[in-house]
């Protein structure tokens, strides 16, 4: 536990090389990311943690191609990212429900963009398959306004996965949920990965969440942020919530917390 990442058994799926980014403001540039490099291997689950406002969300927008970095290069499955691509799925803290659509049609939305030729029936079947994986069968015809916060977030995750993306990018999707719902959804994430593995980058404020869900954790520094530390989480794939209270996990959490709090590096 807590060893440096140095395994090379799988191809690299998300590859950031010396990425720096700055926002233009009135008097010059406002640096956000400073020379960030990280490699996430195929079907790995990586979590990025760091102090508030350090540029974690900027990182997700860069990887998905929504914005271009000022310098450095980003590759997804070996291809340089210069614009948005259909092989990415995204979910945010805001579940972004389209209130005028049913739950099923919310999930189908990405297919309308990336697979315009897919038949309506196929789309429905694919969406239903995902909804049943997250225990939402029977809710497909409901309006999003009839769902609880946790259910909306599950719909949002189905929508992020429905077009079978190579990379799933999660920007604090569980951040606004109560503790019990959050733990339920953590278990659900493990279930989804067991059914069909995917590469995932999770941005989170919750250190326990990062440890419970991920294979590797990247710690970012204060803005302009760089990766100051990375650890592998060696808990295996069958994780229980009780594992979070084991002594080795407790010490890992403590070391992560002190690194984030440390202003000197």
């Amino acid at each position: 536990m807590g060893t440096d990442l140095n395994e090379a058994e799988r191809p690299v799926q998300i590859d950031l090389r010396g990425v720096s980014h700055a926002f233009e403001i009135e008097n010059g540039a406002f640096p956000v990311l400073n020379d960030v490099s990280l490699q996430i291997r195929k079907n790995h689950f990586a979590a990025v943690v760091g102090p508030s406002g350090c540029g974690k969300s900027t990182l997700t927008r860069l990887i998905s191609g929504l914005i271009k970095p000022v310098s450095g290069e980003i590759y997804l499955a070996g291809e340089r990212v210069t614009s948005p691509r259909a092989t990415v799925g995204m979910a945010f803290q805001n579940p972004v429900m389209l209130e005028w659509r049913s739950v099923l049609k919310n999930v189908i939305l990405p297919l309308e963009i990336v697979a315009p030729k897919m038949s309506h029936k196929q789309r429905q079947e694919r969406a239903m398959e995902l909804l049943s994986m997250v225990s939402l069968e029977g809710f497909e015809d409901k309006r999003p306004s009839e769902l609880s916060g946790g259910m909306k977030q599950r719909v949002s995750l189905c929508r992020a996965l429905v077009h079978d993306p190579d990379v799933l990018i999660l920007d604090e999707p569980f951040g606004a949920l109560d503790a019990f719902t959050r733990e339920e959804l953590w278990a659900m994430m493990h279930r989804l990965r067991r059914i069909k593995p995917f590469t995932c980058l999770l941005i989170t404020h919750d250190l326990r969440e990062s440890v419970f869900l991920s294979d590797e954790i990247y710690v970012m520094s204060q803005r302009p942020a760089k990766i100051k530390h990375s650890v592998a989480v060696e808990l295996g794939s069958e994780r229980q919530l009780d594992d979070l209270y084991a002594p080795n996990v407790t010490s890992l959490l403590a070391s992560l917390r002190s690194q984030i709090a440390d202003p000197n590096n």
Partner: peptide, 29 residues
């Protein structure tokens, strides 16, 4: 319109027209 609403479609490479028709227009109704 919250930026996330645009982003879920923009991240898939949807055109501005598509985003307008599928998101902005119905949300403004």
């Amino acid at each position: 319109l919250e930026p996330e609403y645009r982003d879920i479609l923009r991240a898939l490479g949807a055109s501005k027209t598509t985003i307008f028709l599928k998101i902005a227009l119905p949300k403004t109704l």
